[in-house]
Amino acid sequence: MELLVSGTTIVTIVVACVMALYWLNIFIILYHLIRFGVGTRPKQSAFIFFAGSFVLFLFLMLSTLPIIYYN
């Protein structure tokens, strides 16, 4: 019972929900660019967007390591 209401758990759940919404947003943008885009430019943009999103997400996850270690 104590574990369920701890601050760390709540923060983790909130961050996980935000990340899920973030990836949902990425999926929707990629879907629109690939499905409705005409020519190569939308597809190139989709590739750049996905690559950048993934790299930023990776760095974000890495940035949590010092926080976890410090706490």
């Binding site: 629109h32 660019l33 430019r41 939308p42 967007f49 930023l56």
Partner: peptide, 19 residues
Amino acid sequence: FYYMMLWSLFFYEVMIYLL
């Protein structure tokens, strides 16, 4: 986190422009 949100918002604008 701020840059991730900014990146998403920017590419939303790019998506609207390209579509």
